[in-house]
Design a protein around this nucleic acid. Structure first.
Lengths: 144, 144
DNA sequence: AATGCAGATGCGAATCATTCGCATCTGCAT
DNA sequence: ATGCAGATGCGAATGATTCGCATCTGCATT
């Protein structure tokens, strides 16, 4: 597994340091986007010589090499990072507890074609978040 | 017009100061979201005793009173503000020149119902941006 | 119209996420 | 085993936003 990651990184011309290998594996395990600080804290639990600036720098390199995706979520002012998957994903966010769950599909590929025709733009990407209240928070806050 | 704004603000329990009236009218004229700094610079052109902290504070109050909407766009790390309209809007962003144009409709109201059923969440809001390359930038960068 | 005061503004300092500078360290090619 | 380009650690800088506090201003009351 470890040597596998080393090869993946080397094949992209990225020197396979201990920190990079560790972050790559950590990110691959996650089921939702994390902030740089989340990632830093998780990493520091395992390897204590880990620096926040380094985390930012490695995330930057991974983004530039399309290994991970950087995005913002409407819940706060931070950037979020997640492994790049074959199919892109959107998330459902609970406005009370900030739980983040992945949605099963993307409803706007067709819409993009329509927009391209209407505006003359070439569409390259999109960004969709749905915000709601999760079943637990509905109970907790007596919302039906 | 001015007295009209005064009434609108007073009816929401917001003291109608010169700065608040001015910002309200400024925001109502815009066709796209602006950052606090954009707004500050526009306002300062007209009235020179205008302070950036005050702009932030007034925007905050307007957001809390549903007069304006605060959001983030994927082009930078700043917050954007726009007048709240009867129908919400989404935008198409050019990744080269950062032009922001409003889209004519919203394709995901049906999708929200499906998600609500699948997840048990109550959906309260959503956020959609489309990113592309505008006709001018396609020409300029020789992209077809 | 003058007055008082709660709340608004101006200004500078603080905060927080992110980035940068620079000295030291480490993969990896030789 | 060695050398060096590039990576890391640490602390300081940056930029958007917020806060503290002294001064000012709508507006309700007289």
């Amino acid at each position: 597994m470890d040597s596998n990651v080393k090869e993946i990184l080397n094949s992209k011309g990225i020197k396979a340091t201990k920190q990079r290998i560790y972050l790559y594996e950590l990110l691959r395990k996650q089921d939702r986007p994390l902030t740089a600080e989340d990632i830093y804290l998780l990493a520091k639990n395992e390897i204590d010589c880990f620096n926040l600036s380094t985390v930012y720098r490695i995330l930057d390199i991974f983004v530039k090499n399309n290994i991970i995706i950087k995005s913002k979520l409407d819940i706060d002012e931070k950037f979020y990072f997640e492994i790049a998957r074959e199919k892109h994903r959107h998330y459902l966010l609970c406005i009370y507890c900030n739980q983040i769950i992945p949605l099963s599909d993307c409803p706007i590929e067709k819409y993009e074609k329509k927009i391209a025709k209407e505006t003359g733009y070439s569409i390259v990407d999109h960004n969709l978040e749905i915000k709601g209240i999760c079943p637990n928070c509905k109970k907790r806050h007596q919302i039906h």
